[in-house]
Each structure stands twice: as structure tokens, then as C-alpha cells.
Write a protein that binds this DNA or RNA. Structure first.
Lengths: 154, 154
DNA sequence: TGGGATTATATGGGCGTCAATGGGATATAT
DNA sequence: ATATATCCCATTGACGCCCATATAATCCCA
């Protein structure tokens, strides 16, 4: 599977459209090129996005939870009701819904951050900040990629 | 199968009609596009809705329960006696029955919440509240979410 | 390997279509 | 008749489709 990698800053036009970075479009699975899924991150005030294919896989697992459980209801509400299927136009652009703009403070431009199987969309200043902090934290904790990869698998 | 996803707030007109959101209409199975099933939620003061096809499938499962069991009787009663078959007009609108309006406190507008195989209809403020609470609970239990979503595929 | 030629990407904007909503007219039932 | 259910048509705003352009990236060949 292709991964979402690297960072891009794109502009929002008068109609509210913004281009999904080209290499992110290429990372979308075949047969799922024209639609992405947006949702609020559970961690920060950022938007997360992924392919429809990935959401389908997650959806199946949720639907297999016990039918009448509280969990099932919470999960379905948070996941199914808060995901926003979003179409790309022929040029690879999409509209960021108002609710998500408010949630993230995005106005005239936005930063796309590749996260592997998904990506994040942030207000550019916050994006910069987040990247700096993530890096600091890793260095402070002396975590290297090598050490993480060598950890016992769960 | 298509799922009911995302959230929409629509208005009820003078005649009591409300539009089923377009993407919910698209999520209805072929051959079952003009009719939906409404019933009271067993969990909250909300309406739940789904396709006729889904009800048929549930009916089959109930029929397979032990004929003399309590469960069979409870399910038959609460499901079959309380479901309300509802037709959509050419524009995709339907009328919310008075009993259900009272049950949910819905007056001039209603929120549709996608829940995967079914959807919920709530008074907008309550909908907002429910989503906020589900989200909080989910963030608290993020570990379990992560584990569920990353579980080995079956 | 340098540099013009070609292509791709991000962005701008016109326009037609569709969804949500409103309301009149007709038919059916209580 | 009064209320309810359909059908039909109208309006409005949002969105998708199409075409255009400038800048950036890539190619290709002398």
C-alpha cells in the first residue's frame, strides 16, 4: 500500500476549495481515487483524512462489535456520524467543511502532513509548532527509530 | 453494502415533511429506495431508521431464535409491533409521525446521524450533546479503540 | 550535462446540475 | 368537509464539471 508522506502547504480559494497534494492523490488506492474521508482527530484540533478503503475496513470491525452494547453505540456515533465523505474534483481539489474549518482554525491555507496510512490537515502555524514539538520530544526521550523498531512487538 | 455516514440537519416544512439526506437515500439498497423503516430507539429518546431490507434480515434472525424463548417474544413485540414503515416522496422526503415527534421533542428541524447499518434522528441540540459525549468517552477509552481498530483481521 | 521544450500541479473562474425547501393541485380516507 | 398522502413544479444556493493559466518539475537531446 502507498503511504502518505511529506508535508505540503496549499491555499484555499474563493470557493473554499483546496488541492489534495499530488503525491497524496497518488497514494490513494486504485478504485478509490475520487473520494477521501475526513474526520476530527481524537488527539488535537486537527483534521485527519484517509481513503475510503481504509474506512471500510475499520467500519467492518466496528459493525462486528456486540450489537446492543454501549460501546457499539459510542463507536458508531463517533466514527460513522463524524466522518465526512468528500469528493475530489477532476483537479484533485475538495472543500473543507465549515465545521472542520472552525475546529482547526483554518482560514486561507492549510498544511498537509503525511502520517503513513492517513494524513493530517492543520492550520500552518500549528503544523509548524507540532512538528517542532514532536521532534523535541523524540530527542528528549532519546527514542530513535531503531529503538522503536526493536521494541517487542505487541 | 453502503453505510449511513455523516451528520445532517434538515428542516421540517409546514406539511410536516423532511428530506432524508441525499447520501442516506443513496445508501438505501437498490429495490428499496422508496421506503424506510422508523422505530423508537431502545437506548435514548431518538428515532432510528433503516432500510426495509435490513428489517427483513433482522426478522429472519428473530425467526431462527427458539420459538418458545422469552427473547423471541420480546424481540417480536418490541420490533415488529413498533416499527413504522414510511414512504419517501419523489423528492426524497417523508413525514415524521406525531408519536415519534413527541418521543424525541423534534419540532422544526432534526438531525440525521449516520450509524453504519442504520441511522438516528434527533432533536438537533440533543444530537450535538450525544456526539460530544460519545466523543469524550471515546477519547478516554482511546486505548481500547486503538486496540479494536488494530486487532488482527478475522 | 546544460538549457530549451514539454508536462504536471496548483490555482482561478464560468456554468449547469442537483439537493433542500416551498407550495399548489389532486386524490383518498375518516 | 378536514386531514393526509401524492404528484408536480418553482426557487435558491451549493457543488461538480469543464476550461484556462502560471509556475514548477521533468524530460530529452544536442
Amino acid at each position: 500500500m502507498e503511504l502518505f508522506v511529506s508535508t505540503f502547504i496549499n491555499k484555499i480559494d474563493k470557493k473554499g476549495r483546496i488541492s489534495l497534494p499530488s503525491i497524496f492523490r497518488n497514494a490513494l488506492p486504485k478504485d478509490y481515487k475520487n473520494e477521501i474521508i475526513l474526520y476530527k482527530s481524537l488527539r488535537h484540533n486537527s483534521i485527519e483524512g484517509c481513503s475510503v478503503k481504509r474506512i471500510n475496513e475499520i467500519a467492518n470491525r466496528i459493525n462486528n462489535l456486540d450489537f446492543f452494547s454501549e460501546d457499539q453505540d459510542d463507536f458508531s456515533t463517533s466514527i460513522f456520524s463524524e466522518i465526512i465523505p468528500t469528493n475530489l474534483d477532476k483537479e484533485g481539489r475538495f472543500v473543507i467543511p465549515d465545521t472542520l474549518k472552525k475546529f482547526t482554525n483554518i482560514t486561507s491555507e492549510a498544511t498537509f502532513i503525511g502520517q503513513g496510512y492517513y494524513f493530517q490537515i492543520l492550520e500552518p502555524r500549528k503544523a509548524k509548532q507540532k512538528q517542532t514539538e514532536s521532534r523535541k520530544r523524540l530527542i528528549l526521550e532519546k527514542k530513535s527509530l531503531t529503538s522503536i523498531l526493536n521494541e517487542k512487538r505487541k
